[in-house]
Design a protein around this nucleic acid. Structure first.
Lengths: 334, 334
DNA sequence: TTGTAGGCGTTATCAG
DNA sequence: CTGATAACGCCTACAA
């Protein structure tokens, strides 16, 4: 009786099939011819022993782990699962698996997680950085590792990039606010998050180019969460002269703002117009339904996977850049 | 000038520090004494070369990858990210990373993904199976791999289990429906998903014990998605004699049902009472706000991580079972 | 068509 | 306190 305690290995299969490990390897990889009968015998033995190649050993040899890191702020933010799923689906057929890291948008954590992933030998990194720049990411992952960033950085550094045209969406939002007669505008976002700041910059630009009003007082800090938005809105609405409309760096913040407005008995959109960003599922379902900028998360994820596969396929490619459109979805809150 | 093309290894550090690789290893692991000055020299060299231990090689030796698989139906279902984050947080401080697999609840895919994860040498599997039984999972992962299942299986087989007391929540829901005078009840769920079927069983039991009515016609198939719920509700509501209330296997289905009711101009809750399951964020925000059974996803995830760590720590432990409570949250839809 | 030998980077065993 | 050696399981020249 054969002992089944140890995992079967190529050696054990080879022994049982009366061939060398080399032949087993080639029977599996097809990288060199193996006679039909030998192959058959090997495959049967594999079946019998329930042999599965050890990916760790394979990785040590090949220096490839068939895994990529997906690093986001918080998978709990409804914007990210859509990205994660699209990345997963794009990669899985190519035999890759994704390791997910959550950083909560904290710069140090972003660095630590990145280093950890590199040490684990991932074949590439897909990341939405909040604090790190493209150059910093490159410095951490080394000169050769494929890195795809979801970022609005203008230059972006020596990495592949996917971005959404947030400025366009924000501009549509501000123009819409003006169209409905709302010309005093605040912004709620996270000054430490790159995503937020690029949206804020677009906001400022739009407000100025359209001749609307926004004072410093109306720019309030908030994390990308409902609670953050709630607290920020309370501050904003307790101002002597609050704005008539608020653009939020994401939908979660906007939802918090609307809750705060309700608690403070401030009518939305009559006394306060609210615009979000992302168009998560809840936006369309809540009441008042959220007017927001549609962020094509699934397309972003798919583009990331695509760029990653391309770069793995040809490391010499010049750095790629994919830009996806956004657009305002007008509902009830503004 | 030293060439920096190749990744530094223990050997390169050892050479530069004038010691053997063995000593470098021990300086790092602390598994045997190293003189203070030698250690100092080694650490400096590590600093200089920016050496990071190769986890793949370490894994090959130690047969541990410090990674665990988290296998769910669809990370895009808002119920799962909460689990994923809690698992992540529970595991990350112990130095583990999670590999996420999506199966869409398809039995074959569940098996394939599981095998893939085993081949990758994960140190354990956390899974919410839809088709596979605990025994089947055990057969696939082998006799020793830690496996924590989120399941309602009564026996559960040779695995650790976390379950929520779904029957209690469903019973509360049915009792509530009766209390508000709704006594003809339908159920929408996925006959192929274990989760759904255990909720359905509880539903049937509650309906009977409370003397209400539910006919076979009122049990409609649906995937765990909004679209599925929408289609199922259209079928149900086009029946000659539709039920007065619907219990849904999850919130996504319930949201679809409410949309269908709106399109069909069936008033919720007046003409159709709707109860969901999970209490995802949207439930409280939508209109009408969804009456639903609260499923403590974060607690479930935390419990999974905890059981996993315990089992890794002591493989000889008897199989564990953690049960978490659910409760009905009454809002507007029923 | 098949086999032998060496090495990927780490750690455990055995010596000194 | 430190080193040499072997081994984890696989892949791939090089040989036959």
């Amino acid at each position: 009786m054969a002992r089944e305690l140890a995992q079967p290995s190529m050696a054990s299969v080879a022994a049982a099939a009366g061939v060398s490990p080399t032949t087993v390897s080639h029977a599996l990889s097809g990288k060199r011819a193996v006679s039909a009968e030998t192959r058959e015998r090997i495959l049967q033995t594999i079946e019998q022993q329930k042999y599965r190649p050890n990916m760790v050993a394979r990785s040590l040899r090949s220096r490839k782990t068939q895994s990529i890191a997906l690093i986001v702020a918080d998978i709990t933010n409804p914007y990210y699962p859509a990205i994660a799923r699209a990345v997963h689906d794009g990669l899985v057929e190519a035999g890759y698996v994704s390791l997910i890291g959550n950083t909560d948008g904290i710069g140090e954590v972003e660095q630590t997680v990145l280093e950890e992933m590199v040490a684990r030998g991932v074949d590439g990194v897909i990341m939405r950085p909040m604090a790190l720049t493209g150059q910093q990411v490159r410095d951490i992952v080394g000169p050769v590792m494929p890195a795809v960033l979801i970022t609005d950085e203008d230059e972006g550094g020596p990495v592949d990039r996917v971005n959404t045209d947030d400025a366009h969406g924000i501009h549509e939002a501000v123009a819409h606010l003006r169209d409905i007669g709302v010309d005093e505008l605040g912004f709620i976002g996270d000054p430490l998050a790159a995503t937020s700041m690029s949206r804020h910059a677009a906001f400022v630009e739009s407000v100025e180019s359209l001749g609307l009003h926004a004072v410093d007082e109306w720019f309030i800090d908030s994390e990308f969460t409902r609670d953050g938005g709630y607290a920020a809105a309370k501050k904003l609405l307790s101002l002597e002269r609050p704005p008539r409309g608020i653009v939020c760096a994401n939908d979660l913040i906007a939802i918090g703002v609307i809750q705060a407005a309700r608690d403070l008995r401030v009518a939305v959109p009559q006394r306060l117009a609210v615009v979000g960003f992302d168009d998560i599922d809840t936006a369309a379902l809540m009441s008042p339904a959220l007017t927001t900028v549609l962020n094509p998360a699934a397309a972003v994820g798919a583009a990331c996977a695509d760029l990653m596969l391309r770069r793995i396929d040809d490391p010499a490619l010049p750095y790629q850049h994919v830009s996806l459109p956004t657009r305002l979805v007008i509902r009830e809150s503004a």
